[in-house]
Structures are given as C-alpha cells and as structure tokens.
Amino acid sequence: MNIVVLIKQVPGTDNVKMDPETGVMIRSGKDTIINPLDENALAEAVRIKNSRDDVKLTAISMGPESAMKALKEAVAMGADAGVLLSGRAFAGSDTIATAKALAAAIKKLGPVDLVICGERATDGETGQTGAMIANNLDIPVQTYVSALEVKEDGVVVKRTVEGGFERVEVPFPVLVTVNKDINEPGFPTLNGKLRAKQVTIPVWGPEELGVDKSELGLGGSPTRVVKVFSPKLSRDTIMKKADGSTKPVDELIKFLTEKEAL
C-alpha cells in the first residue's frame, strides 16, 4: 500500500508580523513549523502504517530549500521517504500551479493508494490545493475528513459538514483532506530522528517532474494578487463599566430592545 502525505512548511503562528507601513508580512526564517493540519495528516498516515505491514509512506513538500527540515521531521515521525519540490520555477505559484506540481510528483512516485493532506494551511488558508491535486490525478477526493477507516479496498470517511457529519465510502485510490478532529498529532522519536539524519531527500525541479516551466510558478498561475492591505475594524462603541449595579446591563437591554435584536 502506497501512502503519500503532503506537507507544507508554514511560519509558526507567533511569528507572523505585519510591517505596519507596507502591509507586507515579515517572515522570520527560523521559526517554521509543519502546517498543523498536515501534522494530523501525517499522524493518520503513521497510524495506518503501524496497523499493517505493507505500507510505504512518502512525504512530499513544495517550498524553499529550508522545507527540507519539515520533510526530515516527517521522516522522524514515521514517513519512509521524502521528496522536496524546490526551485525558482515554483515561485509565485497559486493553488492551480501548486496542484499541478504536486500531482506530477505523486504520479512520478508510481501508483498511489491513499493521499492525505491537511484541509488547509495556516498561511494561505485557501484549502483548495488538495481537491485540485485529486482532480489532476483523476482520483476521487473527500474533504473535511474527521475519521478515516481503512477497509479491504478503500476507505470509509466521516466528513464534518454544516450541521452534522456525512459518511462516504470510497475505493482506492483516493485523496483525503483532514481536519483536526481526526487525531492528536504525534512526535518524532529519537530513532526516527536518527533515521531522518541518514535519509537522503531528493529535490525535484520541473525537469524531474516532466512539467513544462510555463505551467508552474507565477506564469502557470491564473490568479494575480492586485494589492495587499490591512483590514480596518471600527464601530461607534457605547462603553459601560461594570460597577456592581445592574445599570450597565439594564442599559444594554434597552439598547438591544431599541435595535430589535432580542
């Protein structure tokens, strides 16, 4: 059974700061982490791997050279191998171009049974890439998965949707995107860390993927960022201070009654 987990390296949440003048993100290169939902994806893949003895688990990431660290971490957590897609050709990719590159990488690895990724990444928050990759691979996709049961020749997933859950049965091969209810993310072990040190993670560019450069990066991206700005929040706020009396609450009730909000 071949499982591929897709992981993205993202800035640690505390370290995302905006330049108040330019509105541009200040990235500190050092404090990066694996996208939290991708850690859930990885933990789920490791769980499946540990429950049977025929699993080959490969982690793939697209990003700068430093994303090698995230892949090593994935190996330390239980992946057998890793592949990094990196190079200038990928820079500026939107979700369409990213999905092309990642789908090509999965194809190159050979027949896959199960692809798992986080439902979205904390930096871009688009949540589109998973489904797009499935489309490019021409395999079914199941999104917002909060429980995954591996059967003889497929999976039964529980999806978290508006107002409840759906259960869907899908044969292999399939791509699932998971949310955080699926499991607790794991930790790398010392032996995993030692193994990760030995593992060589290949870096693939457009040539290795056999994808024309024009389909990748900014050139392969249908969307363009026009401008970036800081959100503005403000309302005319009536402020009251609690003073032990019911007065502020009475005034609130009066306000809400006038606005017909109750």
């Binding site: 995302v16 905006m18 800081s230």
Partner: peptide, 8 residues
C-alpha cells in the same frame, strides 16, 4: 495570513 492582511 491569519486575517492579518487582506489581499485583492
């Protein structure tokens, strides 16, 4: 990016 910015 965590709602810190808006992008058009």
């Amino acid at each position: 990016i965590g709602g810190n910015i808006m992008a058009t």
